[in-house]
Amino acid sequence: MKPLSIQNIDMVYELPKGGSVHALSDVSFDLAGGRLLTLLGPSGCGKTTLLNIIAGFLAPSSGQVLLGGERINGPSKDRGMVFQQGALFEWQSVAKNISFGPRMNGQKPAEYKPEVDRLLDIVGLSGFGEKQIYELSGGMQQRVALARCLANDPEMMLMDEPLGALDALTREKMQGLILNLWVETRKSIVMVTHSVEEALLLGDVVFVMAPRPGRIEKVYELPFAKRALTEDTRELKQGDDFQEIKEEILSFIWEMEEQIMGTGV
């Protein structure tokens, strides 16, 4: 997988009534191919903006994003996106949703059919291919979204709070699924999440971002994602090392929130 290089990104939103918001300020980092980066931070720290810039949905005010040395200037099928919800096409069956990318790129049914079946199997939806989207639960819909993204065989998967709308139990299951997809496919993944625990468990690299202006404040390289493949995730989360980092990040985020909101809690 190709490395990602973010170079001096600045993002300034001009407000319609005058004034501006500095959503990202001089953000730079390099991410080797095949890593799982999670982005954490209080609301308004620019993590979704950063993700949208990498996806090519937004053009940065200055700076550039390179994937494998090539400059990104717009969305493309080498960077698949998984949204929180509502991005599936309800008028198509599960299988049609998954084959959307290959079909848009001119593949014939004979070419994509085996791949769709394989992906259905991988995300645990074998036999659900002919079901309609509205017949699926929220968790199953996110499985379809993951499979649809993978069907294009992208260099990189971008996820904007992919598990944010799910109940706690389903969320834990899906975390396991994402982890397994990452290990099996060796894709680079950048994932925005609000859950510190999720970020620590899944993140091979974790960025903690700070607002006003949006910037990367802390970088962690963590072993938990790889350990979760062989150890029990619940025990892992209860471990002292996990809890210590979780507390550290939580108190850091709290401090930032207090700076913004004042001390009233």
């Binding site: 996806a55 949905f57 099928k77 698949g80 996106m81 991005a87 848009m104 649809r148 294009n152 971008l158």
Partner: peptide, 15 residues
């Protein structure tokens, strides 16, 4: 049409 659907289609390679 939600922005997500439009963006999803673009990032899947739709013209």
């Amino acid at each position: 049409a939600s922005l997500q659907k439009v963006r999803a289609a673009y990032s899947l390679g739709a013209s």
